[in-house]
């Protein structure tokens, strides 16, 4: 029960933060990416505001265990690789096209109209498709 309470409160605070910071407004996000036009630095303030409590959080993991049990997430084993670069490039292009990333896409689903629902559905298809392609790629390397 405790795990569910924590997950819900975290999700709710995240959603509230996205709305309050203006990040559910695609114009503000595209405005941040518009470095050659009229640049809107709001997203940079959001990132700084979010990274500060998270730096404290990582520090607080030392010598402790998660409150609801389990282990801390492991450090990623691999160095930056091709998947990271190719995937992030694809994500960036989609992000620039619509001004939505996964967090705000879910956070705005209740008030984003049909367009918001359509984006979420397309994103879900992309995510499931990516998993399938990765599975296929891994199988290919395993048999090679």
């Amino acid at each position: 029960m405790k795990r569910f309470g924590i997950a819900f409160v975290s999700g709710a605070l995240f959603g509230a933060g996205l709305l309050i910071s203006g990040m559910t407004d695609t114009q503000k996000v595209q405005g941040f990416l518009d470095i050659t036009g009229s640049w809107d630095p709001t997203l940079a303030f959001v990132m700084v505001g979010a990274i500060l409590p998270m730096m404290l959080a990582w520090r607080l993991t030392r010598g402790r265990r998660p409150l609801a049990g389990g282990q801390w997430p492991a450090h990623p084993k691999s160095a930056p690789d091709r998947r990271l670069i190719v995937g992030s490039t694809m994500f960036g292009v989609g992000w620039g096209l619509a001004g939505l990333c996964p967090g705000p896409a879910i956070a705005s689903v209740g008030f984003g109209g049909t367009e918001g629902l359509l984006f979420l559905a397309a994103m879900a298809i992309g995510m499931i498709g990516s998993g399938r392609v990765l599975q296929w790629l891994d199988q290919d390397t395993a048999t090679a």
Partner: peptide, 30 residues
């Protein structure tokens, strides 16, 4: 807008702190 950005951002960071210290999970939506 920048002040709202900073405040909302801090809420997002606190949300991540709660999920990490509580459930040991990284708050990555994707």
């Amino acid at each position: 807008a920048w002040i709202f950005g900073l405040m909302g951002g801090m809420l997002i960071g606190v949300a991540g702190l709660i999920l990490l210290l509580g459930n040991g999970r990284i708050m990555g939506v994707s």
